[in-house]
Design a protein around this nucleic acid. Structure first.
Lengths: 152, 152
DNA sequence: CGTGGATTGTTTCCATGTAGACAAAATAGC
DNA sequence: GCTATTTTGTCTACATGGAAACAATCCACG
């Protein structure tokens, strides 16, 4: 159980989805940071940039819901991205409460320069699994996360 | 994509293991907190109690490694559990640096009173999946997390 | 039209987890 | 035996994410 724990009985957790998800996510993210540290952004922030690349003008709250990021936290991350000149804000005429987000030219360049490494690393992030197993896992996670079947 | 995000194109992430793991874990944990809030402990801390129930006298660092919790954080959680009277510490004679952990009688009662609800909730935590799919997912996550095949 | 309720993003405070530094103890190597 | 290195747990400073409260704005309803 948890490869590095000889002699520790964690068998009770082997059927716990919550536990296994946490462990798996931790493992994948640790690999991310070990390899892509120089990305200069957390995976979450980079995901936001990617989402804006594909969805220009998206409202902040809509993006937060889509990525399951809380509004308070999204405000902070967006603030940081704006301060870095990667994202720009615009208040739409039809809703003075809202904020629409776009990548700046610098933001677009930032994403273009790093996207390849980001996804290449993700593709190689599960050497424990065969390609077939990985695809199966992705499919099940999509279903669990509610991402399956929706199209833009 | 992410059921609640009509009109947002997140298709680029549908093959991202890191993203899907984070989303899934978030979803499962949100369900945990919504249902088992009165558990009075984070899932992680409860997991520690369960692990100690099954592994009495385990060394703190060994437990931290097994559960992929950083030493600094483990020290804090254990401190809190000790302060609550759920866990006791003992310095072993053969290594004065180390600390062995055990459940107190209160700790054991705490676990016994809540374990059923904890795992029952976990068993019901993925209504999006069939039983078969859930078993497949568990198997793949065990493989990914490196928990497969090891026995006490 | 006016009011109550809902929505949107922000801020502050809090909780949780980590990096790095440290001291004490144990181990490895000569 | 001695010294350098590693291990173990703790503490501090920091980072990250969330809850709650709030103001501004929008919407629903009478």
């Amino acid at each position: 159980m948890s490869g590095a724990a000889p002699g520790v009985d964690l068998s009770r957790f082997e059927s716990s989805l919550g536990f296994l998800l946490r462990l798996s996510q931790q493992k994948i993210f640790a690999r991310f940071f070990a390899t892509l540290g120089p990305l200069d952004l957390t995976p979450g922030a980079f995901t936001i940039l990617l989402a804006l690349r594909d969805n220009p003008g998206l409202r902040q709250g809509v993006l937060a819901n889509a990525l399951m990021i809380k509004r308070a936290n999204m405000a902070k991350i967006v603030r940081a991205l704006v301060d870095r000149g990667l994202v720009s804000r615009h208040v739409p005429e039809d809703d003075r409460r809202a904020i629409e987000l776009n990548l700046t030219p610098e933001g677009a360049a930032f994403v273009a320069a790093r996207e390849g490494a980001f996804f290449a690393h993700d593709d190689e992030s599960s050497p424990e699994l065969t390609d077939n197993e990985r695809e199966t896992l992705l499919g099940l996670l999509r279903k669990l996360a509610g991402t399956q079947g929706e199209t833009p």
